[in-house]
């Protein structure tokens, strides 16, 4: 039994080429290397946070799947709030402004489940994404603690794994999607010595990416009933804590 088969169709639509995103990141890094300054700092920051995920299309798909199943199954997991991680490298032009590279990792999922004496049915959607991007930070207050406005723009490289298991048989489908994400936020940080502890709150706006079957890009996840594409949407609130280490005396001299 293939639960998903009604949601796969062939179509070709617009997509973001991740190679282009990489090229943009390298250009920005070169820019950082060639800019002329003195006494600037490099800050390496790692963060851990919680994110909520809209995933409207996939939730709708789950509802449709429920209706088509031969048994009355239930949704036991529906894209819950999940931890996410990020790592960033910032370059301070001056004490109030920094620019850098950032990367997030998010993962969440859903489950449709049914179980009786005869066996078990599972329909899992497992999502994960890596989001490399650019981070701009402007200090609003810079005293014993610092309050900054942080804006990220990144490219989401998502994977959707759909696992079906019906009694003893199982199937797995893998999809990929790409999208542009914007994440404005406010960050409060406390520098001490060479380190800095921070907390950030923001909202991630995902422009949503089309899911393409891995190995067959032309096959797109769609609702065959309506013909609508089923897109991954990571949009949601983000809160996180972070720790950063500043490297002093790092300078780049240019001619």
């Amino acid at each position: 039994m293939k639960i998903l088969r009604n949601y796969i169709s062939d179509s070709t639509i617009y997509f973001i080429n991740p190679f282009h995103v990489y090229k943009a990141g390298i250009a920005i890094l070169l820019f950082l290397l060639v800019i002329r300054s003195s006494g600037q700092q490099i800050k390496i920051e790692g963060g851990y946070g919680l994110g909520s995920y809209t995933m409207t299309d996939l939730k709708k798909m789950n509802t449709s799947v429920l209706e088509t199943l031969p048994v009355e199954a239930g949704i036991t997991d529906n894209f819950p709030v999940r931890p996410y991680y990020y790592l960033s490298i910032d370059y301070n032009f001056n004490p109030g402004f920094s620019i850098g590279l950032t990367g997030n990792y998010n993962t969440t999922g859903s489950r449709i489940s049914y179980k009786d004496y005869s066996g078990e049915l599972i329909f899992d959607n497992i999502l994960s994404s890596y989001s490399p991007g650019i981070q701009l930070s402007v200090a609003l207050v810079d005293k014993k603690f610092k309050i900054s406005e942080v804006n990220n723009i990144s490219c989401s490289l998502s994977r959707l794994k759909i696992k079906e298991k019906v009694i003893s048989s199982s199937e797995e489908y893998k999809y990929k999607s790409n999208s542009i994400q914007f994440e404005p936020g406010i960050k409060v940080s406390f520098p001490f010595s060479r380190f800095e502890i921070g907390a950030k709150a923001g909202y991630l706006l995902d422009l949503k990416g089309i899911n393409r079957l891995k190995g067959d890009r032309d096959t797109i996840l769609k609702d065959t009933k309506t013909g609508d594409e089923i897109k991954t949407n990571w949009s949601g609130f983000r809160i996180s804590i972070s720790i950063a280490m500043t490297i002093h005396g790092f300078s780049i001299h240019t001619n």
Binding site: D77, T107, D116
Partner: peptide
Amino acid sequence: NGCEYEPKGVYEVKVDP
């Protein structure tokens, strides 16, 4: 917690054979 998410839950229904 950084590994790929594993969905959870079992929806069990009582059915008599």
